[in-house]
Amino acid sequence: MILDALLALAILALAAWTVWTRDAFAAGIGFVATGLLLALAWVRLGSVDVALTEAAIGAGIGGVLLVNAATHLGTTAEEAPPSPRQNRLIALLCAGFAVAVGTALLTLPDPAPNLVHEAAAALPATGLGNPVTAVLMVWRGLDTLLEAIVVLLAVLGLWALAPEGATRPAPPPREEGPLPLLARVLPPIGVVIALHIVWAGADGPGGKFQGGAILAAMWVLAWMAGLVRAPEVMDRRLAWALVAGPLVFLGVGVAGLVLAGEFLALPAGWAKPVILLIEAPLTLSIAAGLALLLLGPPERAP
């Protein structure tokens, strides 16, 4: 209980400071620290799998992205800041919004509205023997597929922003000393941990996104140290790595439509191997997509 109060207070204070500080780099670091504490908060909320996602994607690669952006963008104001009067109005509006959200959360009917029964009731209709697998494939399946496609779309959007004639992200500044050493030692360990997280995720939702984020981070680390080159945008192997997951997933979905009469439905007894068949390419695609998002758009070759 003290732990919760401490955590919540620290998160609030840090978040407030992040919003108010003028130094963009400092705000980025503040955001990462907030994310770290939020991961602990999710543990206290009883959801370790969300905590894993927050640690890997929210604070982890997301934080790195924002800190990088801060050094590139700086704190140039694009427009005039709101006048004191407007500012007061905005603050009042936001306070009202916070009070409304808080009231809504605190006056929830008990028990809170939930989908536990609906999820259970829908299971027999899926024609699957194993309810856990059914939830994973039917309730979470479409979600997961669309999530992977969103990552793919974001990569395409990023590439669309590249200037004419740009073929690959600009190489990082040259580094010597400890960084190349770290980039040689850490990735093998990171890959093992990533695979462990994906494997452990078979019992809970979403192991491949967290694992994919770690894989992406390890590859970006090697790139930062100058050990690997960013791939050409037109590289065919890269294209296949990006679409392999969604394609296999769609293929299995259509096969379910033909064989079991429902999109993404699986014939009983085949669920486990088919899920592994889907997860492996999906992890690869997600890792490749997240890594490319982290690198940013291609820049014109010098």
Binding site: V43, A55, V67, A217, V220, M224
Partner: peptide, 25 residues
């Protein structure tokens, strides 16, 4: 929770390296 700690530990090194590189620019 050990898995979560493991993920934090692996990404801590990555994040710090990325921050230092960002700060050098």
């Amino acid at each position: 929770l050990l898995d979560l700690a493991l993920v934090l530990a692996v990404l801590a090194a990555f994040a710090a390296a990325a921050f230092v590189q960002a700060a050098r620019r």
